[in-house]
Structures are given as C-alpha cells and as structure tokens.
Write a protein that binds this DNA or RNA. Structure first.
Lengths: 228, 228
DNA sequence: ACCTGAACACCGTTCAAGT
DNA sequence: ACCTGAACACCGTTCAAGT
C-alpha cells in the first residue's frame, strides 16, 4: 500500500530564508498573518504550515505571532473561514430561479475550496465560521422559499453539505497525487481478476469530476424539491 | 471562533506505563501492531497515534515497530484498511433487489467508519486499500447489473462515494464535540438576526443523521437508476 | 502595545549495535 | 531475523524579558 502525501505537495527540503531581503516588512497584523498563512497552505499543504515557517514568510520572529493569535489552531480557523467568503449577487439569490441560485452557490463553494485544497479537509473538523454559516443561511433561505417544509429544512441542507464536502474532499486529495492514482490503477490492473468491474471502467483514472458533481447535486435537488 | 478538538478526544496528560505489567507480552507481529493501532486510534483519535505510545501499548521499544513497518504512514494505511472489510452475504449482493444490496453495503460502510471515527477523515487522503476497493467493485457490479451504462458507471460510483464520505466525515467530527455544536448554536443564537433561517431550524442541534443519510442515498439512486 | 530568544517537552526516524 | 537505546532534526508553546 503506497504511502500518500495527504495534502502536502512535496517541495523537498526547500528551506527558504527571509522572503524579500530587499524592502522593509510592513508591521505584523492579523490580516497579514492570515493572508500569508493561506499562501503558505496553498504552497505547502496542511502539514506545511509551521509557526516558524509562517513567521519566516512574515519577516518576524516565530514568537511574535503569538501576540496576534492564541495558537496554531486559531490560524487554521481564520485561514479557513477567510477562504469561504461568498460574494454572490443578492439578485441571483432572490431570483425566482431558486435552482440556479442554489447550484451557483454550491459550485462557487466547491470552486473556492478547490482553489485551496487544504480547506476542504479542514472544514468538517473545525467550528463553523461566519462565512460558511452565511452560505448555509443563504442555502436555507433559498430552499425554504422554494417550498421545502420547515421540518425538512435541516435534512435538505445537510444532504447538500454532505455531497459538496465529500465531492470536494475527494477531488482535492486525488488531485494532488496523480501519480498515486496511476499507481493505484496499475495495482488494480495486476489484480484485475479481483476487481474486474472497476478495472474495466478505469474508475481511478477516467472521471469527469465537474460533471459528476453537477449531476449529483441535481439528483439531490430533484429528491428534495420535486419538480412539478 | 472556538478551537475544536479535531478528532482527538482529550484525555489530558494520561501518560500510562506498560499496559499489563503482569503477563508476558506475545511477540510483535504486524497483526498485533495493526490491531493495537486501531485500539489506540479509537481511544485517542488521529492525533493520539504516536509511535512511542503504540510501542508502549505493545510492551515493546519504540524502534521495534520499524522492523515490521516502514513508517507511521504505513500504520495508518493498514489500520484504515483493516476497518473497512465488508462481510456481506453474497446472496444479498446478487439478489434481484439490487437497491437493498446497495443500501446495505453503504450503510454498513458508514457504520464501520463511525465505529472508528478517525477512519472517515483518513480514507480520502490515503491510497485505496484492498478492502475499500472490494467495496467499490461490489458496488460497481451491482449497479452494472441494475442497468447502469458502462459510460455512467464511474459517475454513479463516485456520486455515492461522495455522499457517503461527506455524510460520514461530517457526522464523525460533529459527534466528537457536542459541546462545540452547542457553543456554535449559542453563538448563532446571539447572531440570530444574521442567520435567522438556520437559527430557527436549529441546524446545528436537531438532526436525524441516519435518516438524512438514508434519504440522500435514495435520492441519488433515484437519479442514477430511475425507477420505472 | 508589540516583539524577541532561550528553553521545554515533545515528535518521527536514522544509526550503529545488540541477540 | 528480530529488537534496542542514544541521538538528530524537528515541532508548538511557555516564559521572562526587552522596546
């Protein structure tokens, strides 16, 4: 069973010195810390975020961070929420085409997480921040106006959440390790008498991720709010 | 934004000595190592698995593990796959009621992961082991016999995968931190003018996880294999 | 108010040795 | 073939101190 890099893109021992030795660094601030944390996470993955490394990028001492932030978990929480903001036009969200409004928000949500692949795996294990709560609120409002009963609203929201999260977490992780998928498929080929169906379908290789995502959302919406 | 225990149940500095000072330990073996790793993961969560701690439980020196296993990632891979075995009756899988067969496998899969809450978060980021591949093979076979086109088979499998994984990862993590959910809901209550819909629906508190899971699977299956 | 270096209590893993 | 302790190169974070 091949080890897999879980989210860490492997730049090897790329130990960089002070990032911009030229200009004077602006003073530390929560905003700079979070923005730089997102950059670092994008570049090095979830295991690449180290307090010392983050401080390096900011041109400060490692311990300076702890004045602005109480611990590393808080850096994660803030970086995560910062990436989940939704700038959707209110017109769209209130348009009579509720289905389009839902799909737009969900696809944007997924796209935001795929731009920052560490975020998807993180989201389910952290407390829900304001930006993701705003998305759920928006979703609840649209579904409610679309006719979903009060009693079914939680279930509807969570169904869609489940699908979005599963699709995005999977996609984000497979994405980072094509060579692993290839290895997996080759291992499968060796064992094609054991796994004939998925080997034939090349399950681990051929996949229209975007299309599958969209179809699944449609199926769920069909079930949650039957078309008349 | 409250920090959350991401999978680590907090037994504080509970530094235990040799586990059973009485009897002689059986010799180290890969099976014992994996079984004990699963126990440790169940008890302490994903961050609780330390090579030294695992060796403690096994009554061996920390470095002895490295003769049986090449590194910690391999322990994760093996523990993960060991938990995903499916013992489903072949009669069921080949029964004409394909829908029941699918639902049974998926519910069993989810239940297995919920019995070991660390496993769900781990599965999408590791290479796929033989037991999970066997489940996907079974799923592919059933759907194929149920009439799903060859061209749609990958999409069907991944849709269901997405839903199962999203539902289980979410459930497993929320499960571990009821107090966080309560805190979240109370924070929501404070901001109920900002999130009126989900606050009213008590999104973070009232939820029939099992029912939502089952309904979502049904909706997806309805879409993937329309009932005639 | 904001930043810092030294130090502590951990980790995973290498290595050179033991039996 | 199997196991071990010492040691290395890291981590997050505490603390006592600087400006």
């Amino acid at each position: 069973m091949a080890a897999r890099r879980d989210g860490t893109q492997d730049k090897r021992p790329q130990r960089q010195a002070a990032p911009i030795p030229s200009a004077q660094e602006p003073p530390l601030s929560l905003e700079r810390i979070i923005a730089t944390a997102v950059e670092l996470l994008d570049a090095e993955g979830i295991d690449g975020l180290k307090m010392r490394r983050l401080a390096d990028r900011l041109g400060s001492g490692a311990m300076s961070l702890y004045w602005h932030v109480s611990n590393k978990d808080e850096v994660f929480d803030l970086a995560l929420d910062s990436v989940l903001e939704y700038r959707g036009s209110p017109q769209l969200s209130e348009s009579p085409d509720w289905r389009q409004a839902v799909v737009h928000m969900l696809e944007d949500w997924r796209a935001s997480m795929l731009r920052h692949p560490w975020s998807a795996s993180l989201l389910p294990r952290r407390a829900l921040g304001p930006n993701i709560l705003a998305r759920l609120e928006l979703l609840g409002g649209i579904l409610s106006r679309a006719g979903v009963d009060e009693a079914d609203l939680n279930g509807a929201i969570w169904s869609l959440w489940n699908y979005v999260m599963g699709a995005t977490i999977t996609r984000a992780n497979f994405d980072l390790s094509d060579e692993d998928m290839l290895a997996g498929q080759q291992r499968l080929a060796h064992l094609s008498q054991e796994y004939p169906t998925i080997e034939r379908a090349r399950l681990l290789l051929d996949n229209d991720w975007d299309g599958v995502f969209r179809k699944g959302v449609d199926f769920l919406l069909d079930g949650l709010v039957p078309r008349q």
